[in-house]
Design a protein around this nucleic acid. Structure first.
Length: 932
RNA sequence: GCCUGGGUGGUGGAACUGGUAGACACGCAGGACUUAAAAUCCUGUUCGCCUUAAAGCGAGUGCGGGUUCGAUUCCCGCCCCAGGUACCA
């Protein structure tokens, strides 16, 4: 038989499923290895060829590790809560659970088609009550915890309560809301239950807070900052407005420093770590209080500013507040009121986008008020300007025009004094000079000091006076943890007296109730408001919002360790055994979302002692995106600007007025349009006419994101049908480095297909009979084999899958030339290839007489360097660094002998033209370079 | 602007620690087998010059410079592309 890939592949896929070949055990004498893919959201469009790229890589790695004697955990599941299913439900009335189930089944079919070695007994679905029960449980732990800064970890809230009732708020160091109260133990104990709960909420890691949120009226939901692009929702492009709402939040800021430090301990791509660092945005500096007194009352108040350059404080000639700053109205003098009001109005009108884009124009308004410089006591004018952001730091800055370019521009524009503060500052009439060099001038008690001494002196003095302190500021904000949506995990909370209380753990899961429609209620409540009798113990209102998309994905790798457990999210034994993910592959789009939240929850679970490690994903790789290659036709436009029924070929389009229309790439071969298929594409094209070039209709093309709406989706199923799963697997790897983004094209797939057939033919004679020789292999054959054993090992360890595919081709080409059909060569080669092309390997393995299915747990062949040892080497001979010729010499020769042999060679002499070289460089086994 | 990647034939890409640039594959050109096609196989293919040919010569990894016997690889300056981020005080 010739290579019957479809028959072979389907047979083995069935075999693996039935025998559960890839089931992993939670106990083993072997070392563990955990290989994880970012689980997909099961969308209605199914998998396209971009999805499997990472899955193929992890599958190769998993199979390789099994051959290397590891107990491999390689699971798959679905992130199955989410917006698209809900949108679809709103449009069609179909329950999201139904469409999600259908989509999952389709995904599963497609995944199975590719021969992945997943342990499906561990499958998880975030929308499954048996799963989200534990998502709710983790939420409850977060609600029941506070962050103890002194211990630098999360602790049970009861510990805080105990502290309050014995010692009051004295000595509590917590990450908490800013408005926490100070009280004695007696005062605390005298508080009512309700008052106590209200105070505790300010400490909980999952807490309710009135916050300004991105509200999208069209979607009826709150969006995270990363879901909003330029004032419109990323999904759907609907307008987004700011709205105040009571929202569940997660105190991720408590972990800011640990999230930052942890990055140094994990093997992740540098750009991705950098993104997380920027996102966390740590800046070290000081907060300084500038006092101001209302003239009439004489009451001293203060504005707090944050600065990273406290050393420049004597150059502060003004303060700037964000227009939204809480004291602006109060501060503004009657004379300035009109101007300030007008300015605030003007900034409010500017969209976020304008405000960011317009960084060149200087604008602002004087409030008429003055603050007191904390050291000199001089009056400092207070301005407002929109270059200061309410959401960062304290929403107020001190303006030091000589040291900060924005302050400098502001000062120039409004004629404020620019005071030099260092003898190293230059060209202050041209621009600010932020140098830290030199000694301070015009700076009171730090005059003559250098940077670090000045900072230390200032901080000490500020603290003495109670007017400031060293402070670390983060850009990271607490994460909003609620969506006004149906298709998500219900929050296991009910309200009594306006305060949230948890349901009992034994009452989990809190099942998602049925509703008549998936829209907000008439009064604007989330969809859960429609559920009948949605009350705890028939009297207390349940929380109506559901959890955000990232809830279920922030701990799922633990569930795979013990997916069937109904007592715990995973047993201690399972967690102790598997510990963490050794290799995680997925797209970089999750850099600041999923990957940050997962690290946060992991650290939290570690603090509570439920998990073993601080960081969940030891090694992470970002696979590149496979882009689509779209094709276009050009529709002729008539004088009125209407589209006609005539289509112009690409090369002629510039002679006419046309508009480009996406066409399905499946109707196009090598950019040539199949006219018949096009006519059948849509009824309106049935009578289409074409202006051809050379008798062909050539389409335009462009590289874009692969998407249904662009008709450029290439489905893996078609490829599998045409070439087989093994070919597709090899081809996706062959396309280029895993981490690189690239447009999908099938140009080279024939080459890979040919390779597999060539490999198959090694085992068969001319009549397609399986026929092997038991003869001992030749030196050349052994060399070929051991080269590939080594190469594939090295390549996989450094995730260079594309180069192994090339090497396989070289190996098979060599063996074909040697007419090698020897068992001692082909059997180990089959094992090496089995990680990449498991079906053909499995088939040949059983033809070789092994137990069916056993190749997955065979032993990776041992590399023997002796077979690669050469006696001779073709030394490249360079003259003045330019390669001229090769010279075969025994490798046993030592340097002087090589030099002698080279110089005596007649061809070499010809290049030297009778001159004797000034210098001869010989690198043994590498190169000879003659300098003339 | 800043941070991080990257720039190599007609194309995808290889060259891992400074040591033969262009492996492997596609495409293209020519050929074999075949009535024909598919399949398979063989030869050539960085560019330019020279030559009937064999061979030879020169240039060449975004651009300009440097270090080195030797640079795709290291250093300096610049250009371009991609991703991230942005009045962050």
């Amino acid at each position: 038989m010739d290579y019957q890939y479809r028959e072979i592949e389907q047979r083995w896929q069935k075999f693996w499923a039935e025998k559960q070949t890839y089931r992993a055990s939670n106990q083993s004498a072997k070392p563990k290895f955990y290989v994880l893919d970012m689980f997909p959201y099961p969308s209605g469009a199914g998998l396209h060829v971009g999805h499997p790229l990472g899955y193929i890589a992890t599958d190769i790695f998993s199979r390789y590790k099994r051959l290397k004697g590891f107990n491999v955990l390689h699971p798959m599941g679905y992130d199955s809560f989410g917006l698209p299913a809900e949108q679809y439900a709103i449009q069609t009335g179909q329950h999201p659970a139904v469409t999600t189930e259908a989509n999952i089944n389709r995904y599963r079919e497609q995944l199975d088609n590719l021969g992945f070695s997943y342990d499906w007994s561990r499958e998880v679905r975030t929308s499954d009550p048996a799963y989200y029960r534990w998502t709710q449980w983790i939420f409850m732990q977060l609600f029941n915890s506070w962050y103890n800064v002194a211990a630098d970890k999360a602790e049970h809230i009861q510990k805080l309560v105990a502290h309050f009732s014995s010692r009051g708020s004295e000595g509590v160091k917590a990450v908490a809301d800013e408005d926490v109260l100070s009280f004695t133990a007696d005062e605390w104990n005298a508080l009512s239950e309700e008052q106590q709960q209200r105070e505790l909420l300010k400490y909980r890691l999952a807490y309710l807070k009135e916050s300004t949120v991105n509200w999208c009226p069209a979607l009826g939901t709150v969006l995270a900052n990363d879901e909003v692009k330029d004032g419109f929702s990323e999904r759907g492009g609907h307008p987004v407005v700011q709205k105040k709402m009571m929202q569940w939040s997660m105190r991720i800021t408590a972990y800011a420093d640990r999230l930052l430090q942890g990055l140094d301990t994990i093997d992740w791509p540098e750009p991705l770590k950098e993104m997380q660092r920027n996102w966390i945005g740590k800046s070290v500096g000081a907060s300084v209080k500038f006092g101001f007194g209302s003239l009439e009352s004489g009451v001293e108040n203060h504005i707090e500013v944050f600065t990273t350059r406290v050393d420049t404080i004597f150059g502060a000639s003004f303060l700037v507040l964000a227009p939204e700053h809480e004291w602006v109205t109060q501060l503004t003098t009657p004379e300035q009121e009109k101007e300030v009001k007008a300015y605030i109005e003007q900034t409010q009108k500017k969209s976020e986008l304008d405000r960011m884009a317009d960084t060149k124009t200087v604008s602002g308004a004087f409030t008429g008020a003055y603050a007191k410089h904390p050291f000199t006591g001089n009056p400092v004018p207070i301005w407002i300007a929109d270059y200061v952001l309410a959401g960062y730091g304290t929403g107020a800055v001190m303006g030091v025009p000589s040291g900060d370019q924005r302050d400098w521009l502001f000062a120039k524009h409004f004629n404020l004094p620019i005071v030099p503060i260092s003898d190293a500052q230059k060209d202050l009439d041209q621009q600010a000079d932020p140098t830290k060099e030199g000694k301070y001038i015009n700076s009171d008690f730090i005059n003559g000091l250098t940077y670090q001494d000045a900072v230390n002196a200032l901080i000490t003095k500020l603290e003495e006076k109670g007017q400031g302190k060293a402070k670390v500021n983060f850009r990271l904000r607490d994460a909003i943890f609620g969506r006004q949506r149906y298709w998500g995990e219900p929050v296991p909370v009910y309200f009594r007296g306006g305060l949230p209380y948890l349901i009992e753990e034994s009452e989990l899961p809190l099942l998602l109730p049925e509703v008549d429609k998936y829209l907000p209620t008439e009064s604007g409540e989330p969809p859960l408001g429609r559920a009948k009798n949605w009350k705890y113990q028939d009297q207390y209102e349940y929380e109506l919002s559901t959890m955000p998309g990232w809830a279920g994905s922030s701990w799922y790798w633990y569930r795979y360790m013990d997916a069937q457990n109904d007592q715990e999210f995973a047993s201690k034994a399972a967690i102790d055994y598997w510990q963490d993910v050794d290799l995680y592959i997925g797209g970089s789009e999750h850099a600041t979302g999923h990957l940050l939240y997962s690290r946060f929850w992991n650290k939290f679970l570690k603090d509570l002692g439920y998990v073993k490690v601080e960081e969940p994903f030891k090694k992470l790789i970002n696979q590149g995106m496979i882009q689509g290659r779209s094709n276009f036709v050009y529709r002729l436009i008539d004088e009125k600007g209407m589209g006609t029924n005539t289509f112009v070929s690409y090369g002629l389009k510039d002679q006419y007025k046309t508009t480009a229309i996406h066409v399905d790439v499946n109707m196009v071969e090598q950019d040539q349009l199949d006219l018949e298929k096009f006519k059948n594409f849509r009824p309106e094209f049935a009578k289409a006419e074409f202006l051809l070039e050379n008798g062909k209709y050539i389409c335009g093309h462009e590289v874009e994101k692969m998407s249904k709406s662009k008709f450029n989706v290439v489905n893996p199923d078609d490829m599998v049908e045409r070439y087989g799963a093994d070919t597709l697997r090899l081809y996706e790897m062959f396309l280029g480095p895993l981490e690189q983004s690239k447009p999908w094209n099938t140009n080279g797939i024939e080459g890979v297909f040919k390779f597999l057939r060539k490999f198959w033919r090694l085992f068969h004679d001319e009549q397609h009979n399986f026929k092997l020789s038991e003869e001992a292999p030749s030196k050349a054959e052994l060399k070929s084999l051991h080269k590939i054993i080594k190469k594939v090992e090295d390549d996989i360890e450094r995730f260079s899958f594309n180069t192994s595919v090339s090497s396989f081709m070289i190996c098979v080409n060599e063996l074909t030339d040697l007419k090698c059909n020897k068992r001692q060569i082909l059997e180990p080669l089959t094992i090496v290839l089995s990680a990449y092309a498991p079906h053909i390997a499995e088939e040949l393995w059983s033809l070789l007489g092994h137990q069916p299915g056993s190749i997955s747990y065979a032993e990776y062949p041992k590399f023997n360097p002796d077979h690669l040892v050469e006696d001779e080497f073709a030394y490249p001979i360079s003259v003045n660094g330019k390669m001229r010729m090769n010279l075969n010499l025994p490798l046993s020769l030592e340097l002087p002998e090589i030099e002698k042999a080279v110089l005596e060679n007649a061809d070499v002499q010809r290049y030297l033209e009778g001159k004797s070289p000034k210098k001869v460089i010989v690198v043994k086994g590498r190169i000879v370079n003659l300098v003339v």
